[in-house]
Simulated assay, not measured.
Amino acid sequence: MHRTPTLLEDLSVEITARDTATLVAHAGDLPAGTRVSVTHLGTEGAAERREAAAAAARAALVPVPHVAARRLASPSELASTLEGLRRHDAHGRLFVVGGDPRTPTGPYASALDVIASGALATAGVREVGIGAYPEGHPAIADDALWAALDAKVAAIADQGLAGSLTTQFSFDVDAVLTWVERIRERGIELPVRVGVPGPAGVRRLIAFARRCGVGTSAGIARKYGFSLASLAGTAGPDAFVEDLGARLTPEHGEVRLHLYTFGTLDATIAWAAAARMAATAPAG
């Protein structure tokens, strides 16, 4: 596993508020300082998300709450959201997304609007994560997607904040590496967290992939470790991670993993612990 040990260092996991109890129960199986992203779902309230972030902080993990721009009704709601996170010491790192609603609830139509508002820097946020799409976005043209990425990266720098990129999950190492090479050619040097699903049922993986516009050709699925001809069973990211780790070079810059749990946080944490152990075990 050429560079897999490095790839597995400082990985991050993504949870929803409903995963809080599982996170608390298994936090000891994650290295201290592991980043825990807390998604902003419309079915969960602000208090639930704050508690999930606070639970991560109490467990010596690093909370990364999501802020969904189009779900914010007003600048005062953004300010109160940031203040609530600050009271739980969970505001230092945020992940800012546009969010699912097609029509904004308030004045923020995109992640860029939130970043450029200046509210994050004023509230003491130090680092802003933004989303990225190596295989494109099902609802956004490629030219617009690249322009938005460039604008968000510039806005983060203009606000004097650190930044990072977290990609949509993928089954295709070729697509991910091509995208990383393209952003480096564009002069984007931010750290990249490559999204990969933790162990999950194949049917669930396919359903999420179709929803997110992720490629699932027969060849890609086979390389990842499952077959489109048989959707029974579970697939894990082992083959993807080993291939990605073996092919990374210094020219790709800082690259780590971001694990999407899809409701299987306990299994994902167990996979990560086993992968780190296997990657660092002496040969033979």
Results as ranks from 00 to 15, higher is better:
H91A: 14
G106L: 00
G92T: 14
L85S: 01
D100A: 13
R86Y: 06
G98H: 04
D100E: 14
T103W: 03
D100N: 04
V97N: 04
D89V: 10
G98W: 05
G84R: 03
D89Y: 07
L112Y: 14
R86M: 09
P107C: 05
T103L: 13
G106S: 00
P101L: 12
G99R: 06
P104G: 11
L94F: 10
L112M: 10
L85W: 07
T103G: 07
R87I: 03
D100V: 10
V114A: 02
T105K: 11
R93Q: 14
D89K: 05
T105V: 11
R86F: 10
H88F: 09
A90I: 10
L94Y: 08
F95Q: 13
H88I: 08
D113H: 04
V114W: 06
A111N: 02
T103A: 11
V96L: 11
G106F: 02
A90G: 05
P107E: 10
D113S: 04
D100S: 09
G92R: 15
A90Q: 07
S110Q: 06
V114D: 05
T105E: 08
D89H: 12
R102I: 09
V96I: 14
G92Y: 09
G84K: 02
S110L: 05
A109E: 12
G84H: 07
T105M: 03
L112N: 07
G99Q: 13
R102H: 14
P101F: 09
G92P: 04
Y108F: 15
Y108W: 06
L85N: 00
H91M: 08
I115C: 05
R93G: 09
D89P: 00
G106A: 02
P104C: 08
P104L: 11
F95Y: 15
I115H: 09
H88W: 15
D89L: 04
R86V: 07
G106H: 04
P101R: 09
G92W: 09
T103N: 06
L85T: 02
I115D: 04
A111T: 02
H88N: 14
A111V: 00
T105L: 09
G98F: 05
G92C: 06
V97D: 05
G106P: 01
V96D: 10
S110K: 06
A90K: 10
G106M: 03
R102D: 15
D89R: 14
A109F: 12
V97Y: 01
V97W: 01
R86D: 13
V96Y: 10
D113L: 00
R102A: 15
R93F: 14
G99P: 09
R87F: 01
R93M: 13
A111C: 07
D113C: 00
P107F: 10
R93T: 15
P101A: 14
L85I: 00
A90Y: 11
A109G: 15
R86H: 08
G92K: 13
R93S: 13
D113T: 02
L94W: 12
F95N: 12
S110T: 11
G106N: 06
G98Q: 00
P101M: 13
G99M: 14
R87T: 10
A90N: 12
I115L: 07
V96A: 10
S110E: 04
D100M: 03
P107M: 11
R86L: 08
G92F: 05
L85Y: 10
L85G: 00
G84L: 01
T105H: 08
S110R: 05
H88V: 09
L94I: 15
V96W: 04
